[in-house]
Amino acid sequence: MTDQNSYPQFRTESGAKGTARTGLRVAFAPVRYAARWLAGHRDVRQTPIVPPQSVAGTALVAVIAIMSFLACLTLAAVTMVFEQAQLWESDVSSELTVQIRPTDGVDIDFEIERAIRITEREPGIGRVRAMDETDGAALLEPWLGAGLDLSELPVPRLIIVDIDNPATLDVGRLRANLSDSITGVSVDDHGIWIDQLKRIANVTIATGIGIFLLVLAATCLSVVFATRGAMAGNQVVISVLHFVGALNRYIAREFQGRFLFIGLKGGLIGCIAAATFFVVGGGLLGFLEGPSGGSPFQALFGGFSLTPLVFTGFVLVLILVSALTAATTRMTVERYLATVQ
């Protein structure tokens, strides 16, 4: 562990070789100090009692970074789906459609007029307007081609109804009133479609939360293994600390400080990677879709960008992962110390 031939004063703390690694060490030094300070070491410049190189640090940092990355992505997906589901809810309550199928021997324009009057009498209704034939043709153009004369075809006609006050509106009564006096009428409040989307959203959210919890559990388990390894590798240190009269609490804190640093470092790397993924991925997606947008992906997730809410989620993941790492280490160490003396 110690290089016998180098004069110790000039040895770097870990004997790290290469400027890149030394650079990284320097870059993470504030994080290291912060971790030790958070763990309760007030003089953070002292040599750590648990030798840093005795802890399988790099591997654990990598595991925690990957886990934080996955946790961030899952959390972001859940947040986005949740926000989008909320949007659908307000969308549905702002509009409904009345559809009239042409029937032989009935003047469709007259029926539309009557339907509009009936609808307008209902409470909670805002603007009501019929879609005229050219609007309908525009809707159907992608399928049937341009220059179409709809009057030759039995195409249903639509009335768009804006809802002013969803609380006072009774869709059931409106539907009954309309079908009492007009043949071939149907009212679509987008309910079925929205219900289905909401169910998909709920399943997606539940799955996401499940994955999130599993990722956290896997992180804790890796920390348990790493801590046990560190304890086994530091039996001399632990025995020395015991015979100089250190409390178990103090020993646990030494390990905790080390692992909190590893958790913070891994968490930072993972969360920054996730944020980068979002910024770059959002840009890339916008580029691929072109200006019109409207992919199925967008229908479920909404915009793919680093919103303040998503960013807050990332920060929470970072805090959660480091806190879990430290707490797991503490528990593992204390359980181990209770068995030796």
Partner: peptide, 17 residues
């Protein structure tokens, strides 16, 4: 403890207090 200087080794009992 091999990773700590002689000074730090000797000071350890006071440090852990």
């Amino acid at each position: 403890l091999d990773h700590m200087t002689t000074y730090e080794n000797v000071a350890l009992p006071l440090r852990v207090q």
